[in-house]
């Protein structure tokens, strides 16, 4: 490889991606652009959601009602050409309502299993914290194992299986906030936030409200491309210097007094996995510290617990982490 003055900016992204998927970056850009047609001005969140999906994780969106959580999941399913279902979680929702139930079929004189909404490629679990812990854990168990066991019989879930759960901020009454151990099942947690005034203005101008609601985003990534992309993640290389940085980050969460609980090994692996995926999405065959920094807030914020003395929340902790841990080793 060339290391001369005129070498391209990313000379080493050559792990075979370019041949099979065309340019990954371009592919992702097109998908993001397509989703952006229905969800205005939320490009970073869309990218993170895609990253989570490519990394075979599940996504938790935490925000107030009406911020476009459903729109985002809907559009993601369309762009990826996935079958999707939606379950609105309520306090009287039972596990069987999600997983499915065996019903006696009098015609055949046998029990017949009716698959629940979980048997789909993309499941939108709306307001997951309104359901009872029992139902929540049924879903989370299925998410972790990729299969459903009902009445002793194990049924695998479809292969791309992706859950987008939404959650209202926990201080609302009548909710059962997810405990830390279950938050850990979600690879990423993102917030959508209020739209940018300009994007909101555009929305008001009805340029999109009438037509946009009707236009379904077109499929931009097919099944093959998705598989190739996912396979490429495993090929991404992580240098010693980068792993040094990752370990410094993790060590900081475990040693600093601001952190009640440090990042678990599972959390650290999730961080690395997302950073690799982000590298692939940017056409790179190796991970750079920026990759880690980009995914850090959404991967780490919900796994970090501030100590009782520290006034900030998880997001503030991530900020501390980014600021205090040196990228360059000594």
């Amino acid at each position: 490889m060339s290391m001369g003055q005129g070498a391209p900016a990313t000379p080493s992204a050559s792990v075979g991606l370019a041949k099979s998927v065309g340019s990954t970056q371009e592919l992702v850009d097109r998908a993001v652009a397509e989703v952006s047609k229905v969800l205005l001005g939320k490009e970073p969140q869309i990218r993170l959601a895609l990253c989570c999906l490519f990394a075979r994780g599940h996504l938790l969106i935490e925000d107030l009602p009406g911020m476009g959580k459903t729109t985002l999941s809907h559009a993601l399913a369309d762009v990826l050409g996935l079958a999707w279902k939606r379950v609105q979680f309520t306090s009287d929702l039972m596990p069987a309502d999600v997983l499915g139930v065996s019903i006696f079929d009098s015609a055949n004189a046998s029990f017949h299993f009716h698959e629940g909404p979980i048997f789909t490629q993309l499941l939108l679990a709306d307001e997951i914290n309104r359901a009872t812990p029992r139902t929540q854990s049924a879903l989370l168990e299925a998410m972790a194992e990729g299969q459903v066991t009902v009445e002793g019989e194990t049924r695998p879930l479809p292969d791309p299986f992706f859950v987008i759960a939404t959650q209202n901020p926990v201080h609302q009454s009548g909710t059962y906030p997810l405990p830390e151990s279950q938050l850990d099942r979600f690879l990423m947690r993102i917030e959508l936030g209020y739209p940018h005034p300009r994007a909101e203005r555009e929305m008001f101008l009805a340029k999109h409200s009438a037509a946009g609601r009707a236009t379904q985003p077109a499929q931009r990534i097919d099944r093959n491309q998705l598989d190739t992309l996912r396979a490429a993640v495993a090929q991404v290389q992580t240098s010693e210097s980068l792993l040094d940085y990752l370990q410094r980050l993790v060590a900081h969460t475990r040693q600093s007094p601001e952190f009640e609980m440090g990042l678990s090994p599972r959390g650290a692996l999730a961080l690395l996995n997302c950073a690799r995926t982000w590298a692939v999405m940017n056409n790179r065959g190796h991970v750079v510290p920026e990759d880690i920094q980009v995914v850090l807030p959404s991967v780490a914020a919900h796994r970090l617990v501030p100590s009782s003395e520290y006034a900030g929340d998880g997001a503030a902790l991530v900020e501390l982490l980014q600021r205090n841990v040196d990228v360059i080793g000594s």
Partner: peptide, 12 residues
């Protein structure tokens, strides 16, 4: 660029 390549893309 030299540093980035040496630090993060070294196995290539």
């Amino acid at each position: 660029r030299l540093y980035n390549e040496l630090a993060y893309a070294d196995s290539a």
